[in-house]
Design a protein around this nucleic acid. Sequence first.
DNA 1: ATGGTGGATTTTCCA
Length: 256
Amino acid sequence: MKIATWNVNSVLARLPHLTRWLDTAEPDIACLQETKCTDDKFPIDVLKEHGYGCVTFGQQSYNGVAILARGECGTVQRGYPGNDEADHARLLATQFSGVQIVNVYIPNGQSVGSEKFHFKLNWMKRLRTFIETHYTNTARVLLCGDFNVAPENRDVHNPQLWQERIMCSEAERSALAEIKELGFTDCFRKHHEEGGKFSWWDYRAGAFRRNNGLRIDHIWATAPLVKYSTSASIDFEPRTWERPSDHAPMVAEFEL
DNA sequence: ATGGTGGATTTTCCA
């Protein structure tokens, strides 16, 4: 089973890149973030032509998550239980082939100490509670998405520059660690110890060309799954294409 | 170098 996560920064603007990439990479599951469109505008027909069914949870202009699957998905959870209309479209959970898939777009947080920063930390607390409440210790769970946190300094191109800045602060890293303590393993780190491997580069100041990036997109697996993990990688190629997303897809494979 | 770029919707918000 091959699973991918990719912040596409508008599924409509990125549709040519998305279909081109799906045709080549052929993941069984692709978790998307920042789809930036309501469910009625999601390009389900085009994706169907490429072999994918869509489970969507979008909103106008901002946020939005989707799960593309080569096959049937189980029941779908859109947002946290008890969510209301005012909630951001940032969490989408379903099942595929006996695996619980949780796709998240964790808030960016703008800047450390800001109102959005506190919203981010609170959202991460809710994520921890959601996972703790909804999945047993023995469940095969994949938590994937744009976490908007670089877990360690080796996930940051210039840790000194980024120290205590958004996506790198101790408060964010602690909140993420508390989720990880529920029993997750970072699939990329299972297979790669080296630093300097990133999944996001700012559009500005030639950041990609200089490899000034952060590793903020992740695929995490619980113990009953991670033992079947055979590879994990970041596919930099779509970031080199014309008018790309600022994120690259992250891929993990399992031999179940 | 406190800027720079990109998407959706506007004359700004968000990343």
